[in-house]
């Protein structure tokens, strides 16, 4: 790995990853709505069209179903497309091509093909964009065998995981929280990958395991710092990939701390937390549990427009602190 490390934003790291992928492989190209001269709704593609031209940074019509399907077909035809959805909410227009086609094609054809397509989904709330531009629907995708689903939480990881996704022979869905785009962090120059399917322990601890995804990793780390002042030692695991889940890292952590909290922005019911909880109680970690498992997820509501309501609709740092405190002090 190149040792030259700079502070880049999450969006800049993504852009750099796509540029590296395109430079390294003629087959890699970008598709999406307004990703050309406009630079993408969140300026992720930015000026890439100037470097790579309109053939490789292709604006598509506002046709999500067709656009996603064209990306699938191009992948079948030997290309390595990266398809950007303008908002993850718009993926619902394209679910047929994602869930029925991309995810199943290799299986249905008995392994005769692979579908090396990467799809990017700006996700999450906090921008005042209301109910149809703010959802966290990654768990839907994690329910589909054939897809890989990742949620990088840092500029370092989003670059390395995008490069891992481009190299992956199967369809990879990247959910990028919109509030992370401007977050800065250390990013090595040059090519490196962060493996899909491996969680990362962001902060080691003894008393409680907090498994978090995407922006909730940062809120959980803030909570862990606060808990530290109360002599509660929290271990924060950044799940990074929600399909396939890194079971071992979670199970080993719970065996150590005996307590588990799951924090995610998607609606709580039927969400990632349910899967993590079940996975733990089905494992040998069950015998180590000293307290009930807690889930902190999105409220049972569409995302509201009013900023106070919007904040209340998803887990915030104080709620994580409170949950951990309750869990740890509940034990005699």
């Amino acid at each position: 790995m190149n040792q030259d490390i700079r502070a880049l934003s999450y969006a800049e790291a993504l852009r750099e990853a796509m540029a590296i992928a395109m430079e390294a492989d003629e087959r890699v190209f970008l598709m999406g709505e307004d990703i050309g001269v406009y630079g993408g709704a969140f300026q992720v593609t930015g000026d890439l069209i100037e470097r790579f031209g309109a053939d490789r940074v292709m604006d598509t019509p506002i046709s999500e179903l067709g656009g996603a399907g064209v990306a699938v077909g191009a992948a079948l035809g030997g290309m390595r497309p990266i398809y950007e959805f303008q908002f993850s909410d718009f993926a619902m227009l394209a679910m047929e091509q994602i869930a029925n086609q991309a995810a199943k094609m290799r299986f249905m054809l008995g392994g005769a093909v692979s579908v090396p397509v990467v799809m990017r989904f700006p996700a999450g709330s906090g921008t005042g964009a209301a109910a149809q531009h703010s959802q966290s629907i990654e768990a839907w995708f994690a329910h589909i065998p054939g897809l890989k689903v990742i949620q990088p939480a840092t500029p370092h990881d989003v670059k390395g995981m995008l490069l891992a996704a481009v190299a992956d022979p199967d369809p990879v869905m990247i959910f990028e929280h919109k509030l992370l785009y401007k977050m800065k962090g250390p990013v090595p120059a040059g090519h490196y990958t962060v493996p899909i399917g491996e969680a990362e322990i962001r902060c080691a601890g003894r008393d409680v395991t907090i498994v978090a995804t995407s922006i909730m990793v940062h809120r959980s780390l803030a909570a862990a710092a606060e808990l530290e002042r109360e002599n509660i030692s929290a271990e924060v695991i950044d799940l990074r990939t929600i399909r396939p889940i890194d079971r071992q890292t979670v199970i080993e952590s719970v065996k150590k701390t005996s307590r588990l909290i799951c924090v995610y922005e998607g609606v709580k019911t039927m969400g990632i937390g349910a899967e993590i909880s079940a996975m733990v109680v089905e494992s040998e970690a069950f015998d180590f549990l000293d307290a009930p498992i807690l889930r902190l997820g999105g409220a049972e509501t569409p995302i509201p427009y009013n900023p106070d309501l919007e904040r209340a609709a998803v887990p915030q740092t104080p709620a994580i602190v409170e949950a951990a405190r309750r869990l740890v002090t509940a034990k005699a």
């Binding site: 087959r27 053939d55 067709g66 399907g69 990306a71 077909g73 191009a74 035809g77 091509q97």
Partner: peptide, 16 residues
């Protein structure tokens, strides 16, 4: 279901 896929396969043909 096959229509967008055919268009994508044709895009690959053109690009390659």
């Amino acid at each position: 279901g096959g229509l967008p896929i055919a268009v994508g396969a044709a895009l690959a043909i053109k690009k390659l």
